[in-house]
């Protein structure tokens, strides 16, 4: 989609220089994140009128009373606690050049998770929290982390823990590149793939609250707020990237490369759709 949109976006950019009014109107007609946000959230609020809005970030536990009770008991000794501890240690340990992660983020990286992903106008791409962590490492001469688990899950778990309760505040600037990235993420979310012919939306829009085997499907609304997560199925922590890769595998598709920009784009779309809902991560799921 991005490939298809790129020429159009480029044309819109060129036109916006020449004839700003016409190009803006055209771009607005093509992609309208704010209108999407309104209809997306309304769909879930109408479908589940008894679920408190802020509870959607708790995924399957907002849909199933039995699971919720189990989760509440589990939260007394959360399985992600060790990751927060390890993440804090990694976060505060100086790099070889003496700097730390705090030097790469606004407010020293504390309480900023709700602003990610963001569109970086200088880079011209979506920067997820994971991507920002790895950029910080490489810019300081360090080896980047795996996008899937371990250190990445730990550092993002710690950062998420400092943002708990803060509402998602994702911005899609009126820039053709940002709009193209947003639209690519949206397309990825709604596109059926894999041998089972499922899209992300097949489970998380059309069937939240229903079961697939033993699992209760989480609503798409608020789904990124709990990331990273400890999954019993994984026997450990996993990042947002791991979650998307796992979804691909579950529909019998081959996951993308962990650093594929489409995973960043879909994270951008989903997080924007959750604007206003509180960060609940790190989370725990079956």
């Amino acid at each position: 989609m991005k490939a298809l949109l790129a020429p159009a976006a480029g044309l819109a950019l060129a036109l916006s220089i020449a004839i700003p009014g016409i190009a803006d109107a055209w771009a607005a007609e093509m992609v309208d994140p704010k209108a999407d946000l309104k209809t997306f959230q309304a769909y879930f609020y109408e479908k589940f009128p008894n679920v408190k809005h802020e509870d959607f970030v708790n995924g399957p536990y907002s849909m199933d009373e039995g699971m919720r009770k189990q989760w509440e008991e589990k939260e007394e000794f959360p399985p992600y606690d060790f990751a927060i501890e390890k993440g804090k240690e990694l976060f505060e340990t100086p790099f070889k050049n003496g700097k730390t992660f705090a030097d790469c983020f606004e407010n020293g990286g504390i309480g900023v998770r709700q602003n990610f992903p963001r569109f970086d106008l200088k880079l011209g791409e979506v920067v997820t929290l994971e991507y920002a962590v790895n950029r910080c490492l490489t810019e300081n001469g360090e080896t980047p982390y795996s996008y899937v688990k371990d250190e990445m899950a730990a550092v993002t778990a710690y950062m998420a823990s400092t943002s708990r309760g803060k509402p998602f505040a994702i911005d899609v600037p009126n820039d053709p590149r940002a709009l193209a990235a947003y639209e690519a993420g949206k397309q990825y979310f709604y596109t059926r793939r894999g041998q089972l012919n499922f899209s992300c939306a097949s489970c998380h829009v059309q069937n939240p609250g229903n079961r697939i085997r033993a699992e209760v499907l989480a609503p798409a609304l608020g789904i990124t707020a709990a990331l990273p997560i400890y999954r019993s199925e994984w026997g450990g922590m996993g990042t947002a990237t791991r979650r998307y890769m796992s979804c691909n595998s579950q529909v019998r598709g081959t996951p993308l490369a962990p650093d594929d920009e489409l995973y960043r784009d879909v994270d951008y779309f989903l997080s924007f759709m959750s604007n206003g809902l509180p960060i609940s991560g790190p989370g725990a799921r079956p």
């Binding site: 209809t39 769909y43 949206k186 709604y190 059926r192 939306a201 829009v205 059309q206």
Partner: peptide
């Protein structure tokens, strides 16, 4: 074929 079909079909699934 799935990829080709979904180039346009995904739009039908978008929440409106």
């Amino acid at each position: 074929e799935q990829t080709e079909r979904e180039k346009t079909a995904w739009k039908d699934a978008v929440i409106r």
